[in-house]
Design a protein around this nucleic acid. Structure first.
Lengths: 166, 166
DNA sequence: GAATATAAGTCAACATGGCTGACGTAAAAT
DNA sequence: ATTTTACGTCAGCCATGTTGACTTATATTC
């Protein structure tokens, strides 16, 4: 009799636990992006611009195809936002040394400043969460998120320094 | 001298750590939604439909305004997807008992089946991550994600049973 | 009971950011 | 010399968010 409850509830609790995780991801991501979205709107930019600025800042001298591989969107979609950012002086393109077909991307000073503003907000949110949750929780968070991800390549990239080299 | 390295690296490591978290959220969310998105496309639906189906399944008998509060979109945006789901027989609406202005939402059998398919994929992904990461990591993940969220109301809702009552 | 407020819906127009398909140009690789 | 690669462009489509204006039915308040 003592184990009736735990046996009967095990699948239910498990289901409940898994649904909680789904909702944590939904609400967490929604709130994580809300404030940067609002800042971007003041420049006439959207979330897509943020992603480009973020990853170019993270991996200076990366090529367009590197960026496409990270974002997993078509070059036409990328082109729309990237060309705006270049035209408005947030990102600079320069031909590669070894391979002059490649156009290496980097943030301008203006781009660095915008990137800083945008991700400062997100870094602070994370920093607060890390403070509140504790060191051990942070390690758990990292483990679970890494495991939710599909791609080994992305897992590796997260661990590496962001110098755009391959 | 022994503390030069740790002192000098502390802010750098911290910055690095925070950026890793940003990327974990980006890659994790991207991969978490990719497969359901592909399934939905076969019905001519998108991610917005998934959200509606998910939360109506989670909180049967919820009202339209309850749903709007969770999704934080305009009623015009919701209307587009919700009316499709009702018309195609995935969701049923019925007038509230106490307040007949309200239209209480619930999944039909067809809706339950679609919801099951979609979130089964996500539940399995989470279950795998939880298995790989361990019990302690799961608790850490929950703590960090809860803390990343902005709204106390949402935190409470995650903990509650989903019966749509308030 | 009349006035007001709330829940829900609708129409119209617009922006963002995905997508496909077709085509062009420059540079590298074969 | 030919083919492949990296990048870009034009055109058009779709999903999903927005604002603003207006309607209908029902509850609530004065």
């Amino acid at each position: 009799m003592a184990d009736v409850k735990s046996t009967a509830n095990a699948p239910f609790l498990r289901e409940e636990e898994l649904r909680q995780a789904i909702e944590l991801l939904y609400y967490g991501y929604r709130d994580f992006t809300a404030e940067p979205d609002a800042m971007l709107a003041r420049y006439g930019f959207g979330r897509a611009h943020h992603r480009v600025i973020y990853f170019v800042g993270r991996h200076p001298q990366m090529s367009v195809s590197d960026l496409l591989a990270i974002l997993r969107i078509t070059k036409q979609s990328l082109s729309r936002v990237l060309s705006q950012l270049v035209r408005q002086g947030f990102i600079r393109q320069s031909p590669g040394n070894h391979d002059r077909r490649r156009r290496l991307l980097e943030l301008t000073d203006k781009g660095i400043e915008l990137e800083r503003q945008l991700s400062e907000n997100q870094r602070q949110r994370i920093a607060r969460a890390y403070r509140e949750a504790g060191v051990q929780a942070v390690e758990g968070f990292r483990k679970v998120m890494l495991s939710i991800m599909s791609s080994d390549e992305d897992r590796k990239r997260i661990g590496r320094r962001g110098d755009g080299s391959r």
